[in-house]
């Protein structure tokens, strides 16, 4: 990657680590969601083990959406976005790199925390590994799809809720195949690889569609 890309990645990563530890907040939110669910469905360990992968995935989806509204908004508010549009760098790549940095700062900690939270949900080691692996492959897709929503709502003062509403329908396939793959690894009704490869494909598609659509939305928002 060229030096400007590295500079952008480092800057974004540094900012998300320095400002209030957004990675930590995401993981805490993840923990809170996972803790709250047994209160709702009851402390039945067998039930929790069965729906555990789904809980972890939904928790990860919500935690990802939570942090996304600032992805471009912070840069828009202080005029950085204007300069990025004029910098002479391909905006699609800029978006992709920003998403990557955002994922490393907020998505990766969720993946790392997933096995620990799996213990609360009575997941066996295989299930834990499967969920972690599917999250590792699938959460980048959530960030990239979410970037579209973040770019569309960049000019709205309270865009966070709207962002979630816009993004969740688009994220349904990722959720379905993520949970399916994790379930398949546990009590194989289908082979693990089929949904897992579809999940990988979804992430790759999102890596193309997300930056292109988000860049287009950002160009329009400068007006």
């Amino acid at each position: 990657m060229s030096s400007w890309g590295v500079a952008l990645f480092n800057r974004d990563l540094r900012l998300s680590v320095r400002i209030g530890g957004s990675a930590l907040v995401g993981v805490l939110f993840f923990l809170a969601v996972v803790t709250v669910i047994p209160f709702g469905v009851g402390p039945d360990l067998n039930l929790l083990a069965r729906i555990g992968p789904a809980i972890l995935w939904i928790g990860a989806l919500l935690a990802t959406l939570l942090g996304l509204d600032r992805l471009f908004q912070a840069d828009r508010e202080d005029g950085t976005l204007d300069l990025m549009l004029m910098a002479g760098r391909p905006l699609e790549l800029v978006v992709l790199i920003k998403c990557l940095a955002h994922w490393v700062a907020t998505g990766l900690p969720l993946v790392v925390a997933a096995p620990l939270l799996g213990i609360f949900l009575n997941l066996d080691p295989v299930a834990m590994g499967a969920v972690t692996l599917t999250l590792l492959v699938g959460t980048p897709a959530l960030t990239l799809i979410g970037a579209i929503g973040a770019a569309l709502t960049v000019s709205l003062r309270r865009g966070g809720l709207l962002l979630a509403v816009l993004v969740i329908p688009l994220a349904i396939p990722v959720l379905i195949f993520g949970v399916s793959a994790a379930d398949a690894a546990i009590h194989d009704p289908v082979p693990f690889l089929t949904p897992f490869l579809i999940l990988t494909a979804l992430s790759l598609i999102a890596a193309v569609v997300g930056p292109v659509a988000a860049a287009m939305a950002l160009r329009f928002s400068a007006d």
């Binding site: 952008l8 800057r11 202080d78």
Partner: peptide, 26 residues
Amino acid sequence: YFGHQNAVKPALTALENLVFWQSFIA
């Protein structure tokens, strides 16, 4: 473009801000 907004990130040092723009802007 030198507009009303400074595009300065308070969490980065002055030098970090400047070095970023130097490598980012073609």
